[in-house]
């Protein structure tokens, strides 16, 4: 009986967590592209106006970012101005939760068929590297190791702390600006 009552609450909590994490990650993608040169170099290969989407199938939470040129991303929230060029689609909110709560690495989620790639796979590979770089910055090393295939050896604590602080500050600023708007 109790389990039956808790089930919908757990499900709702997961959904809210995934929505919140998408909002954080979208803003963080924009921020990291402003902070980190390596991410900009990676993103520069994407066409200007390129739209990247992560979403939960069939019509769940989503995040959309656009490459606005020079390797910089702009976070569009959950609505795209046009169809996305590359979309990474989680088959179920539970799968998104596993990845976004760092219980399953992004690469393992791909290997486990938890998500589909719609669009040019080479761009999806590039965006995965950007996401890995972002996670390596903003997560404590012990958690980042659970999220990425390999924690970058050349990412040392001072650089990590400074970049993470900048990224979190930008995320917070963006949240405030959105709330005011």
């Amino acid at each position: 009986m109790l389990a039956k009552r808790i089930q919908p609450m757990t499900s709702q909590a997961r959904r809210l967590y995934v929505e919140l994490m998408f909002q954080v990650m979208g803003r963080a993608l924009q921020a990291v592209s402003e902070v980190d040169r390596e991410v900009r170099e990676e993103a520069q290969a994407l066409p200007k106006g390129f739209l990247f989407e992560m979403m939960v199938m069939p019509d769940g939470a989503k995040l959309i970012v656009e490459h606005i040129g020079e390797g910089r991303f702009h976070y569009h929230g959950n609505s795209a101005p046009r169809p996305a060029d590359v979309s990474i689609k989680f088959k179920h909110v539970t799968h998104a939760f596993l990845v976004l709560s760092f219980q399953e690495k992004t690469s393992v989620a791909f290997a486990n068929d938890r998500m589909l790639v719609d669009g040019d796979v080479s761009y999806a590979v590039r965006m995965t590297r950007v996401l890995n770089r972002l996670e390596s910055f903003i997560l404590p090393r012990i958690i980042a190791k659970r999220a990425v295939k390999e924690y970058p050896e050349n990412l040392h604590l001072p650089e990590k702390l400074i970049s993470a602080a900048q990224i979190y500050l930008k995320i917070a600023t963006h949240f405030v600006q959105t709330a005011r708007a």
């Binding site: 791909f110 790639v117 796979v121 590979v125 295939k149």
Partner: peptide, 12 residues
């Protein structure tokens, strides 16, 4: 390094 199969390589 942008080929789709690289996602499944066991090592980054």
């Amino acid at each position: 390094i942008n080929d789709g199969s690289i996602m499944f390589n066991p090592k980054e």
